[in-house]
Amino acid sequence: MNNNENTPLLEVKNLKQYFDINVGVFKSKPLKAVDDVSFYINKKETLGLVGESGCGKTTVGRTILNLYKPTAGEIWYNGKQIKTKADINEFRKKATMVFQDPYSSLNPRMTVADIIGEPLDVHNLYSTKEERRERILELMDYVGLNSEHASRYAHEFSGGQRQRIGIARALAVNPEFIVCDEPVSALDVSIQAQVINMFDELQDKLGLTYLFIAHNLLVVRHISDRIAVMYLGKIVELADAEEIYSRPLHPYSKALMSAVPVPDPQVARANKRIMLSGDIPSPLNAPSGCPFRTRCPHATEQCAMETPEFKEISKGHFVACHNIDKIN
């Protein structure tokens, strides 16, 4: 079963991540950053994860890599559940992460070579110093960094170059799976294009699988095979990228898609922009039932009572909404 082409590379089942937040002196309350999320990612595929800031995207990525211990839920990798310390350690040689902030994700007291070489050091992936050096230079070449810069410090580089260093670090262990947590959102638009293009090339060259987190829909559309839309700790819709752009079903996805600028003025006029009223509620006081109901133009009584099920509407198209048929 392990190497069956049909088993997804990564499968997440009912993942929950609650943070205990102190409210008052002795009371604490769970903040449901991720609440019952399930999805899978096939080999060499890219799953885009979009949603407003604070909806729990980063937490999903970090919990998958066990940087936070999941409150509940299962993570399966290559047909095997990641559970024990040994599993996690093994998993960390195959799954890595690119961080959002290219400034705080690189240690200012380490040279580029040491930053990129850290995973090699941790996992003892070389036998001689020369081997380590060669591997680091190879990685720098992959991401388009000049090998002469190996002994420089991270603060000497621009944002785009820093993000390349972060990507080289993520590639060091020869991973199969990379969580990319808004890797371009801190960069200039012109640099964004270069870096995304690089992610694309690396995927083809090294056969990588990505969970690609972004709040910019354009970015995800370009790189993703499938897209998951997240709202307040829950995935509300998941479908093929093309499908979700052309036929979004969940009212939240519809609103998000309508905010994407379209170049054709006729189409643009036809697609009236859907404005959402109100703000995203705090995950500390999430609404009962459907998390989106407080801002949903179609909300009914049922939405306040029951949490909608995450159902497969058509093949590969999942939605969590009570009123799908009525709305569409």
Partner: peptide, 13 residues
């Protein structure tokens, strides 16, 4: 800091 998280993500003790 994220670089500490990054070190933990690659399994540093």
């Amino acid at each position: 800091q994220e670089y500490v998280l990054a070190a933990r993500a690659c399994g540093a003790k």
